[in-house]
């Protein structure tokens, strides 16, 4: 039988290779998205238009044999349009709950910041507790469950910035960025062969296997006490910086740990080490920080703050002699 980290790594790289067939030159971004998937977290993709945010989400869904739903967030979208609605059936005389698109394994929330705050808030419960409560009845969503949201970082007119509570529920925030020259040429060539369509991808794994791998990553990867200590010190350091009005929460520590375990497993490593923390602290923690107005005016970003923290927080002294 394959060792758990190796099994995770095999599936991880198979998925990454599959997605990379469409989304070229973005291996790091794809791996971050897969890390988020296997950490059973939610992903926020933020970038300028046309960089492949939605494509990444669709490729992810297409590579897994799982239920996929897409919600185009618009200002007139209602909460019930996402979570579902209870209707009265005259023929049977009972109320029946009609599940919304959120009842899927992978939910793509496109342009999430275009919906009203009330509608955005409809996702709060399901993202954290993986269930929907309607008319006093709780309806669990299928596992694994992942919300992949996209938002445009320019053209902010008519948008509603995500509230802090909702941002905190995203395990990662990533950007896709422009591809390099060779990758962009390859994208153009693939248009002729119709290979650029995410629908052309065939699933390489199932939702059931993903659920198993999530459980394996959480239990089979060793984390030393020194690394727990390092994670906590990194997160705590974000709360003590003068440029930060609100640092990362404990949910941030938990998210970082889950992602660190998956990264170790994706490299067939049965243990995690500080390099994992350093590689993931930016995507996992940066969007959870609220900077001071002065810092924002001076152009500071959460990612810069995290880089500064990582450059100054010493590794655990327990490993010293």
């Amino acid at each position: 039988m394959t060792q758990p980290p190796t099994r995770i790594a095999d599936t991880f790289h198979t998925l990454a290779d599959n997605i990379e067939r469409v989304l070229k030159g973005k291996r790091d971004t794809i791996e971050l998205a897969l890390t988020c998937l296997l950490s059973e977290g939610h992903l926020l993709i933020e970038d300028v238009p046309g960089t492949g945010k939605t494509t990444l989400a669709r490729c992810l869904a297409a590579s897994i044999e799982a239920e996929f739903a897409r919600v185009q967030f618009t200002p007139d979208l209602l909460p019930s349009d996402i979570t579902g609605v209870t209707v009265y059936r005259q023929n049977t005389g009972v109320f029946e709950f009609l599940p919304g698109p959120v009842f899927a394994n992978i939910v793509l929330g496109d342009e999430i910041n275009r919906a009203s705050p009330k509608t955005q808030s409809a996702l709060l419960e399901v993202m954290e507790e993986r269930r929907v409560t309607a008319d006093g009845t709780t309806h669990p969503v299928p596992r694994p469950f992942m919300v992949v949201a996209t938002q445009n970082s320019v053209d902010m007119g008519g948008t509603y910035p995500l509230p802090e509570a909702q941002l905190d529920r995203f395990l990662m925030r990533i950007t896709v960025g422009y591809p390099d020259h060779a990758s962009e040429v390859a994208v153009l060539k693939d248009l002729k062969e119709r290979n650029a369509d995410p629908e052309s991808l065939t699933p390489v794994t199932t939702a059931k296997e993903i659920a198993e791998l999530i459980a394996l990553a959480a239990t089979e990867v060793q984390v030393a006490d020194a690394l727990y200590d390092y994670i906590v010190r990194v997160v705590a350091a974000t709360r003590a910086l003068p440029d930060v009005r609100l640092g990362a929460s404990t949910r941030g520590s938990v998210a970082l740990l889950r992602a660190v375990r998956v990264r170790a497993a994706s490299q067939s490593r049965p243990y995690a080490f500080p390099e994992d923390v350093k590689a993931l602290a930016g995507p996992v923690l940066a969007h959870r920080l609220i900077l001071t107005p002065e810092a924002e005016l001076s152009g500071r970003t959460g990612t810069e703050v995290i880089d500064e923290v990582l450059a100054t927080v010493p590794l655990d002294r327990g490993a010293r002699v």
Binding site: F273, P274, E275, K278, L310, A311, T312, V313, P314, L315
Partner: peptide, 11 residues
């Protein structure tokens, strides 16, 4: 090498 103690072994 900056004397911060924040460098990982690989760094």
């Amino acid at each position: 090498l900056p004397d911060t103690g924040a460098h990982t072994a690989q760094e």
